[in-house]
Amino acid sequence: MTAEMVAPAWMHQQVTAEQYDAWTDEQSAGIEIVDGMVLVSPSASKRHNRLARLLANALDAAAGPDWNADTDFDVRLYDVPLNNRRPDVTVYRADSIDVTPTRPEHVLLVVEVVSPGSETTDRVVKTDQYAKAGIPFYWRVEQAVTGAPLVYTSVLDPAAGRYRDGEFFAGVVKTAMPFPVEVDLSAI
């Protein structure tokens, strides 16, 4: 085994919230922390990024002054063990724009765009984590091999601590939950 093949020591040790908070933006870019362990994500495809941006732009325009929609930043689900997720799109309270870390109570909706290699994580693991953290809405975007993307919406059932199925859309998303929004994803 060559020196280039040996993973750095920090990849074998749990990271605490205090350690992570001391990292620079460059050090924390492109990773998530699950149960204190660093998960490195590959760069997303252009299609994936475009879907996320189109959704973020539409959600931001429709959300009104109380909410912002952005892509690619950490949402701190738990401090111990540290769990930071980086949803593809996050709708969060506008008055929390300068609050770090972003916590579940700041978040209204998270969107994950499923890519090859993230299927189980986006369909099962993140769904469970976001629900247990109390995020009211979760949308999952499936990239169809042919045709328009499929969007599955979910609404939190707080008593059960899990999501229940919401609306389903093929290509054009037109919904009133969590606020009225319409976006055509079929042109991707």
Rank of each mutant, 00 (worst) to 15 (best):
3 A>T: 10
5 M>P: 01
8 P>S: 10
9 A>M: 14
11 M>C: 07
12 H>Y: 02
18 E>A: 15
18 E>G: 09
20 Y>G: 03
21 D>S: 13
27 Q>R: 13
30 G>P: 01
30 G>S: 00
32 E>N: 00
38 V>H: 08
38 V>L: 15
44 A>H: 01
45 S>C: 03
47 R>K: 14
48 H>Y: 02
49 N>P: 11
50 R>N: 08
52 A>L: 03
53 R>I: 12
55 L>Y: 05
57 N>Y: 05
58 A>N: 12
60 D>V: 08
69 A>Q: 13
69 A>G: 13
71 T>I: 13
83 N>M: 09
86 R>P: 06
88 D>T: 14
88 D>F: 08
93 R>A: 09
97 I>A: 15
98 D>R: 11
99 V>C: 13
99 V>T: 15
101 P>N: 06
104 P>F: 11
104 P>H: 09
105 E>V: 09
109 L>R: 01
109 L>C: 01
114 V>R: 14
114 V>M: 15
115 S>M: 08
116 P>V: 15
117 G>L: 14
120 T>F: 13
121 T>L: 05
126 K>E: 01
126 K>R: 13
127 T>F: 15
128 D>M: 12
130 Y>R: 04
131 A>K: 02
132 K>F: 05
132 K>D: 02
138 Y>C: 01
138 Y>D: 01
142 E>M: 05
149 P>T: 00
150 L>R: 05
155 V>F: 04
160 A>L: 12
162 R>N: 07
163 Y>D: 02
167 E>N: 13
170 A>P: 06
175 T>G: 09
178 P>Y: 05
179 F>M: 11
179 F>L: 13
181 V>A: 13
181 V>N: 09
182 E>Y: 00
182 E>K: 03
188 I>E: 02
188 I>W: 01
188 I>Q: 01
